[in-house]
């Protein structure tokens, strides 16, 4: 309850600030961005995040689960370690390096965001399967479930909440990181923020920053709802 109060007031504050600045029309010698600019940038931002997270999920979840399978466990350590090195590297470096590698454009931005958002998904998928009580699997085997049945009826339902949490964390990170995508020609709300930064005009920075923060908070909250909703009832705590 307390959380929701904080959340709603924060969102109101951020969106209110955005609308206020937009309605100003002019700050100092600079014009503020129009509503059309704002909506278009927000949409571009969201699209970029969405595509990146979908790709990261499509790679991270199967890969994370795959390396828990017998015979492939040897790969687990290098895969997880590799992804965690990826996340230790600063986001700005990952994005900037894409320019010399892939040139400027949306493609570079998305590749960078995928690399950066992969670790939480990969790691959570891996641990979600790894931390299932072996007794549960053994019991299922003992009752004559096939390996495919165990995967679908036991492992996946039990692992789902943790995997979902990984996707949520990754999404929130990616919304923030996507602010930098404009540097390699990716567009999005970062364009507004960065214009403000170069102009040294705080209100214009805020015009881009506030909706980004609002998007991160709102998506985080939404995905947490989904996470709770997909959790099997028997696993729900207080």
């Amino acid at each position: 309850m307390r959380h929701q109060v904080i959340l709603v007031s924060l969102l109101t504050l951020l969106i209110g600030a955005t609308i206020w600045i937009t309605s100003l029309g002019k700050v100092g010698i600079y014009s503020t961005f129009t509503y059309a600019d704002l909506v278009w940038s927000a949409w571009a931002h969201f699209k970029m995040v969405f595509i990146a997270v979908i790709i990261a999920t499509a790679i991270g979840v199967p890969l994370g689960i795959l390396v828990t399978r017998p015979g492939l466990e040897k790969l687990a350590l290098p895969v997880i370690a590799g992804a965690s090195v990826g996340q230790t590297i600063p986001s700005l470096a990952v994005i900037a390096i894409m320019a010399p590698l892939l040139g400027f454009g949306l493609r570079s931005a998305i590749v960078a965001l995928v690399i950066y958002g992969l670790l939480p998904i990969l790691r959570n998928s891996y641990t979600s399967i790894k931390t299932i009580d072996p007794a549960v699997i053994e019991a299922a085997k003992g009752m004559g479930l096939t390996r495919a049945q165990i995967a679908c009826k036991i492992e996946l339902p039990l692992a789902r909440p943790v995997i979902m949490a990984g996707i949520r964390i990754s999404t929130v990170i990616t919304v923030g990181t996507a602010e930098l995508a404009v540097l390699v020609g990716g567009g999005g709300l970062g364009k507004i923020t960065l214009t403000g930064v170069f102009a040294r005009e705080a209100l214009i920075i805020l015009q881009g920053a506030a909706p980004t923060a609002a998007m991160a908070i709102a998506l985080g909250f939404l995905l947490e709802r989904v996470e709770r909703w997909t959790t099997p009832r028997g696993l729900k705590g207080a």
Partner: peptide, 24 residues
């Protein structure tokens, strides 16, 4: 609980945005 929640929300604010807010 409140302090930790605030800190958590703060993390969801993109760093670039943070710099902006603080400059203001």
């Amino acid at each position: 609980e409140v302090v930790l929640y605030f800190a958590e929300i703060m993390m969801t604010v993109p760093s670039l945005a943070f710099f902006g807010l603080l400059m203001l």
